[in-house]
Simulated assay, not measured.
Amino acid sequence: MQANLKKTGVAALVSFAMMAGAVAPAHALGKREKGFLTGVAATVAVGALINQQRNQQNQHPRRVVQQQPQYYAPQPQYYVQQPTPTYARTAPVAYEPRYRAPSIYSVPAATTFNEYSPQMRREIQLELARYGYYSGSIDGAWGPNTYRAVQAYARDSGNTSSLNSVRGAYGLYDALVG
C-alpha cells in the first residue's frame, strides 16, 4: 500500500511540475526558466524510478550460496641431504678483487711529471722526441704517448725500476733534461 502511495505522490508531483510550466503565462517565464523547470521535473521523475527499483530489489533478498571448503591432500616432500662442501667447513676467507693495473695517470711517473712547470714538461717531451721515443705534440701534457716514451727511455737506459717511485722518476727526468 505504501509503495502505491509513493507512486501516486511522485506521479502527482511530476504532473504538477509539468503543468506549472505549461500553465504559466508566456511573459512570466522565459525559455531558460521553462527549461529549468522541465529539467527539475525530469530529475524528480528519474529519481523516483531509481528509488522504486531499489525498493523492489530490497523486497526480494538475494540467496547466498556458501561454497563448501575444498580439501587437498598435502603432497609428500622428499629431502635429500647434500654433503657439506669442504670450503664451508673452513674459516671464511676474505674476498679480494682481482688485480687491476693502475691508470697511466696515477703512476708515480705521471704525478712526478705533472709537478714540473709547463715549460719543464715541454722540455722533457722535446728531449724524448730528440732521442726518438716521443712522436706526439710537444704540449707538456701527460698522456699515453708520453707514458710510452718515458717507459721506453727508462727501459733502454736501464732505469726501469726508477719509475716505481716518485724519487726515481725525479732522477730520470732530471737526467733527461739536466
Rank of each mutant, 00 (worst) to 15 (best):
N145C: 06
G136N: 08
G143C: 07
W142A: 09
G171V: 11
L128S: 00
L176S: 04
P97T: 06
S117R: 03
Q81W: 05
Q67D: 15
A129N: 08
T160F: 08
A169H: 07
E115H: 11
S117E: 03
D174F: 12
N159W: 00
S117T: 10
V64P: 09
T84G: 05
Y95T: 03
Y173M: 08
S161G: 06
M120Q: 15
Y95F: 11
Y99A: 09
G171K: 14
T111E: 11
D156Y: 01
A110K: 01
Y153V: 02
I104W: 00
G132S: 01
V150S: 04
Q82L: 11
P102R: 06
E123N: 10
V107N: 00
Y170C: 02
G143F: 01
A175L: 09
Y147F: 15
P76I: 00
S165G: 02
E127L: 08
A141I: 15
G168N: 04
V150T: 05
V166H: 13
Q68L: 15
T111D: 07
L128K: 05
Q81F: 15
V65T: 14
I104R: 00
R122W: 04
Q67E: 12
R100L: 10
Y71Q: 03
N145I: 06
Y147L: 06
V93S: 02
G143N: 15
L172K: 03
V150M: 06
A110W: 00
G132N: 03
T111R: 14
R155V: 13
P118N: 10
G171S: 13
R98M: 04
P69D: 02
T112G: 06
Y78D: 04
V107M: 08
T86R: 09
Y71W: 05
Y153M: 04
N145R: 12
V93G: 00
A88W: 03
T90Q: 01
R100T: 15
R89C: 00
Q119S: 10
Y147C: 11
A73P: 04
L126W: 05
P85Q: 07
Y87M: 06
M120F: 12
V80K: 08
L126D: 11
G140M: 12
I138R: 13
G158D: 09
Q66H: 14
A141D: 13
Q68V: 15
A109M: 10
P118V: 14
Y170G: 04
G158M: 07
G168D: 06
Q81D: 13
Y105S: 13
Q125N: 02
T86I: 03
L172Q: 04
Q81K: 14
P83L: 14
A91F: 04
A101F: 12
N114F: 04
V80R: 12
A88M: 03
I104T: 02
R89E: 04
Y133W: 01
E123T: 14
P108C: 07
P108K: 01
P108H: 06
V166S: 14
R130P: 05
P76Q: 03
S135G: 10
L126Q: 13
R167C: 07
Q82M: 13
L176V: 08
N145M: 10
Y79K: 05
E127M: 12
N159V: 00
R98G: 07
Q151M: 15
S117N: 00
L128N: 04
N145Q: 14
E96I: 10
G143W: 01
